[in-house]
Simulated assay, not measured.
Amino acid sequence: MVERFHNITDVPGIKIGNEEDKVGYTGCTVLLIEKGAVCGVEVRGSAPGTRETDLLNPMNLVDRVHGICLAGGSAYGLDAASGVMQFLEKQGIGLDVGVGVVPIVPSAVLFDLPVGDPAARPDQKMGYQAALKAKRGRFPFGNSGAGCGATVGKVAGHHRAMKGGLGSASKVFPNGLIVGALVAVNAMGEIRIPETREVIAGARNDQGRIRSSIEWMLEQPSIPLTAGTNTTIGVVACNAKLTKSQVSKVASMAHNGLARTIYPVHTMFDGDTIFSLATGEIDASVDLIGTIAVDVLAEAVILAVKNAEGIEGFPSSKDVYES
Rank of each mutant, 00 (worst) to 15 (best):
75 A>F: 09
272 D>I: 01
109 V>G: 03
71 A>D: 02
288 L>S: 02
226 T>M: 07
317 S>A: 15
258 L>C: 05
84 V>Q: 01
285 S>Y: 07
236 V>F: 09
21 D>R: 00
85 M>F: 04
31 L>W: 00
129 Q>I: 15
19 E>Q: 14
120 A>P: 11
14 I>P: 02
38 V>C: 03
121 R>M: 10
273 T>L: 09
225 L>A: 14
232 T>G: 09
104 I>K: 10
181 A>P: 01
271 G>D: 08
154 K>T: 07
149 G>H: 08
2 V>R: 15
127 G>W: 08
204 R>A: 05
286 V>M: 03
160 R>M: 14
90 K>W: 05
220 Q>G: 03
188 M>A: 06
13 G>A: 11
19 E>R: 13
9 T>I: 02
313 G>Q: 01
286 V>T: 14
249 K>V: 13
215 E>T: 12
55 L>I: 13
285 S>L: 10
282 I>Y: 09
161 A>C: 15
171 K>I: 12
43 V>L: 11
209 R>S: 12
202 G>C: 07
13 G>S: 12
301 V>S: 01
161 A>L: 08
290 G>D: 00
80 A>W: 05
288 L>E: 11
22 K>C: 09
12 P>M: 05
103 P>Q: 11
174 P>S: 08
65 V>D: 06
42 E>G: 04
268 M>R: 10
204 R>E: 12
43 V>E: 06
49 G>K: 06
117 D>Y: 13
323 S>H: 12
289 I>N: 01
260 R>W: 11
109 V>D: 02
211 R>W: 04
83 G>D: 03
32 L>I: 14
240 A>M: 12
132 L>T: 13
26 T>V: 04
263 Y>F: 15
4 R>Y: 14
62 V>K: 12
273 T>H: 09
162 M>F: 07
262 I>F: 00
144 S>Y: 06
181 A>I: 10
141 F>K: 08
90 K>D: 14
20 E>Q: 13
18 N>S: 03
25 Y>P: 00
243 T>K: 08
118 P>H: 12
221 P>V: 08
254 A>V: 01
134 A>Y: 05
18 N>H: 14
294 V>T: 03
183 V>D: 04
58 P>Y: 05
122 P>A: 09
38 V>W: 03
203 A>S: 15
152 V>C: 02
261 T>N: 08
19 E>I: 14
11 V>F: 06
285 S>F: 13
109 V>E: 02
84 V>P: 06
34 E>W: 11
273 T>C: 08
250 V>F: 10
49 G>I: 01
11 V>C: 11
246 Q>D: 08
2 V>I: 14
41 V>P: 03
145 G>D: 05
24 G>W: 05
165 G>I: 10
13 G>K: 09
127 G>F: 10
190 E>V: 00
95 L>K: 14
263 Y>T: 13
300 A>F: 02
162 M>P: 01
219 E>D: 15
